[in-house]
Each structure stands twice: as structure tokens, then as C-alpha cells.
């Protein structure tokens, strides 16, 4: 099977670890840039039915508000960043701990995906995005052979 993908590297710091895949091809597990950074890549399932594409991201322990979903230039971007801060005050000192974890993943949307019609829900640790397909414009003409 001919693989049809590319891995652009974007210089922006918050795009570290971004994976770009074509929705119509199989995803790949390795990506350009390595995993030297804190961000990780979560597991994703993509399926489709007659009306829509369904993208499921396995990301347990988060809240719906933690996710940022956007569409830019035909790419669906899913990212999350979670900041945790704990503070502990004792007699002599105060201890503050800060932990930061995030991920970012992008998918190329096929032509017939309607980027304006995306809905999402977060259930059981899975973010489920439903991207409706564009309604096909019936433009078929039967040409008679004379």
C-alpha cells in the first residue's frame, strides 16, 4: 500500500509533538521530532458511517473544558493542556508543586468532511468528536449516446 503522509514541523513551542496524518490512511506510530519533550500522543480511533466521521481520543482523567479543538486549513487540531498546582504551608516553609502535561495531535480532514459541523462529548475518559459529512450535491447527468 502506498503511504501518503508527511510530517511538517512547526516552529511554535506549543506544536511540539504534533502528528499529522491523513484521515483516509492508516496512522503511524513514529513521528518526526522524537519524544524528547513533555507532550505525549494519545491513542485515537477514527471510524465513519454514512453521515459522519467519528474521532475518539483516549484521554482519561480530564474535563471537557481541558480540550481545545480547532480546524485550520483543512486540519483538525486536538490539544489539551492541564496545569496542576498544589500548595502546602507548614510552620517554616511553603511548598508549591506545579505539574504540566499536554498533548497535541492533528489530522488532515478529507474533502467531504464538513468542518463547520463538528460536535463533541467527553465520556468515560474518551473525547468523541463527530464531524458530519458534506451532503453530496446531486449533479449527475445522464448523457445519451446517439
Amino acid at each position: 500500500m502506498k503511504r501518503n503522509f508527511f510530517y511538517p514541523i512547526t516552529p511554535m513551542a506549543n506544536q511540539i509533538g504534533t502528528m499529522v496524518e491523513d484521515l483516509l490512511n492508516n496512522g503511524l506510530n513514529d513521528f518526526f521530532g522524537g519524544q524528547a519533550f513533555q507532550s505525549t500522543v494519545p491513542a485515537v480511533n477514527v471510524s465513519e458511517n454514512d453521515n459522519a466521521f467519528i474521532v475518539e481520543v483516549a484521554a482519561p482523567g480530564l474535563k471537557k473544558e481541558d480540550f481545545k479543538v480547532s480546524v485550520e486549513k483543512g486540519y483538525l487540531n486536538i490539544s489539551t493542556s492541564q496545569e496542576k498546582e498544589t500548595e502546602e504551608t507548614k510552620e517554616n516553609y511553603t511548598r508549591k508543586e506545579f505539574s504540566y502535561s499536554k498533548f497535541s495531535r492533528a489530522f488532515k480532514l478529507p474533502e467531504h468532511a464538513d468542518a463547520a459541523k463538528i460536535s463533541g462529548s467527553y465520556n468515560n475518559g474518551v473525547l468523541k468528536l463527530t464531524i458530519e459529512k458534506k451532503v453530496a450535491i446531486k449533479d449527475e447527468k445522464t448523457i445519451e449516446i446517439q
Binding site: E21, L23, L24, N26, G27, A43, V44, N45, V46, S47, E48, N49, F53, I54, A58
Partner: peptide
């Protein structure tokens, strides 16, 4: 029982 076509399956 979803009759959906699978494009990518990274977790099952």
C-alpha cells in the same frame, strides 16, 4: 453493534 467503517484503530 455499530456498523461503522474503521479508519484508524489505536485503542480497542
Amino acid at each position: 453493534t455499530n456498523a461503522e467503517k474503521i479508519r484508524l484503530s489505536e485503542f480497542r
